[in-house]
């Protein structure tokens, strides 16, 4: 009787172990024991969907496993769901697929080695750009003076401002607005300006 019970117990244990193994490979051998709690129901669905969005479908071009309609993607989604249900966390599940497919399968570049460049580059760009603007705004050429010019510095009809670039500007305005060739007021006896 005890022998029979022992045999039954061992058989049951073996069967349970076999069932737990599924088709043979235990993911814990690859990524370690599950680090998170077992999930089920809507929490499981949400977590599986989130992780499926981070895996690249290897047979499609650029789509995530979550978005891809292909059969391979739906198999991968099922595998993601099984792993999440067993309590593996996001990094473990991603690492499991990375073992088989390479870093290629992760849509979000993991933070290691040279990948830091792509994550930090935009921040560097922002700082660099802001620095350039700050420098440009400080350069006296570009930024307006604190107080606008008054009195003698303003041009009259027969005078031009001292500043040469300002003078050129005034001449051009007169040329365009009044049709004065070269921006100089025509002499009373001069022929009329060309119709343009």
């Amino acid at each position: 009787m005890k022998t029979v019970l022992a045999v039954v117990a061992v058989t049951v244990a073996l069967a349970a172990a076999a069932a737990a193994q599924g088709t043979g490979e235990d993911p814990a051998q690859v990524v370690g024991a599950p680090r998170g709690p077992r999930l089920e129901g809507p929490a499981l669905d949400a977590r599986a969907k989130e992780i499926a969005g981070l895996l690249r479908c290897p047979v499609c071009q650029g789509l995530s496993v979550g978005d891809s309609p292909s059969t391979m993607a739906s198999n991968m989604r099922a595998q993601v769901k099984d792993l999440a249900a067993a309590g593996y966390d996001q990094e473990q599940i991603l690492a499991y697929f990375e073992r088989s497919y390479g870093e290629f399968v992760r849509l979000k570049p993991p933070l290691r080695g040279v990948n830091w460049l792509v994550w930090l580059a935009p921040a560097f760009g922002l700082l660099a750009g802001a620095a350039v603007i700050a420098w440009a705004l400080r350069a006296p050429r570009l930024v307006a003076d604190a107080a606008p010019p008054t009195g003698a510095a303003l041009p009259g009809p027969d005078t031009l401002p001292d500043d040469p670039s300002l003078a050129r500007y005034v001449l051009r305005v007169r040329e365009r607005a009044y049709g004065w060739p070269g921006g100089m007021a025509p002499r009373p006896d001069a022929p009329p300006a060309d119709t343009v």
Binding site: G53, G62, F104
Partner: peptide
């Protein structure tokens, strides 16, 4: 190394 920069990034 082949890696991806995808939608999440």
């Amino acid at each position: 190394v082949q890696m991806s920069v995808g939608r999440p990034y």
